[in-house]
Design a protein around this nucleic acid. Sequence first.
RNA 1: GGUGCCAUAGCCAAGUGGUAAGGCAGAAGUCUGCAAAACUUCUAUGCCCCAGUUCAAAUCUGGGUGGCACCU
Length: 323
Amino acid sequence: MAAFDKKLIAVLGPTASGKTALAVALCERLGGEAISCDSMQIYQGMDIATAKPTADEMRGIPHHLIGVIPPAEPFSVAKYCALAQEAIADVRARDRRPVLVGGTGQYYTALVDQLTLLPSEADPAYRAYLQQRAAAEGAQTLLDELREIDPEAEETIHVNNLGRIIRALEIYHTTGLTKSEQNRRSHAAPPLPVTALCLDARDRAVLYDRIDRRVDAMLEAGLLEEARAFLLRPDAATAAQAIGYKELSPYFSGEAPLEVCIDRLKQQTRRYAKRQRTWFLRDERMHVLYIDDYGDAQALADAAMEIVAADSAAQPEGNTENG
RNA sequence: GGUGCCAUAGCCAAGUGGUAAGGCAGAAGUCUGCAAAACUUCUAUGCCCCAGUUCAAAUCUGGGUGGCACCU
């Protein structure tokens, strides 16, 4: 029962839906600590663009996995899962409740479903070789080769998605296992017990309006300066994909007026939010909380608490915890 | 007031007699090591309006409306 009280809670949802505030509220009420599930907040710096929670917003609640990786370092799901598992265990060891917060669906799913990921790192040389062949012979040739070794995977990958084709071939090349076989084996461990909350808006305009206002706030907070500095560094691999810098680049180079870049930034953020919804909402374990159903943060947190309590009550002790 | 040019989706835009390209935006999705990424699918019964010519009109003719340019 004591272990069960430490059941993982996850606060998920599209960007600007209010995840940080809700997670902090839950931590305050339940004696929890926040563990970020965000592929960009994990990097050092980039504070404004990735909307990292400020000290003010954290209200004294410890937050893990924010700003812990240098932007120059290539990062991946597997690395995230390792860090997150460690953080969860650490929080529990101190008798606190782990509250996962973030919007990176791939990281969330891999962590919670406890996917057994491959031990091997990416093989840059082999990737470069395939990349070069794709350029010379066309992606279709590679896809045809994939069909020979893994027809199952070939069916699910589109020719235009070269990255996936290469990864599937790489898996076979480095492990001798097909991607399909590897995927089957990845479900060896049972999913982590979790109370998953997904924030969303019934009226999409509500969410999009919050996104617009957040971008405006970022600009006021000094996004331009942060972006200008970030764009000067050529070494950021994964981090360079963050929304917030590349959209401003045409402004710095004089190719487009600032207003155009800002509109573009807002637009890209809206599209990102849409993809996040698609990812989270298809998960049947998700409890959806519509932010436009509640008058204030207090009411929203109350509703979330009810779900957490109900989820605990519905679950008999002893059949869930993994540690 | 006159003359000329133009009018195709929310935006840009191709199409000069044979049954509406493409891009952007939007929507719906995919996702097992770059995921704030990458990728897929869908999206004009109709081309400013009216009349006419024709088997057939976004395409040709006349008129109207609106915009732009130049002239007075």
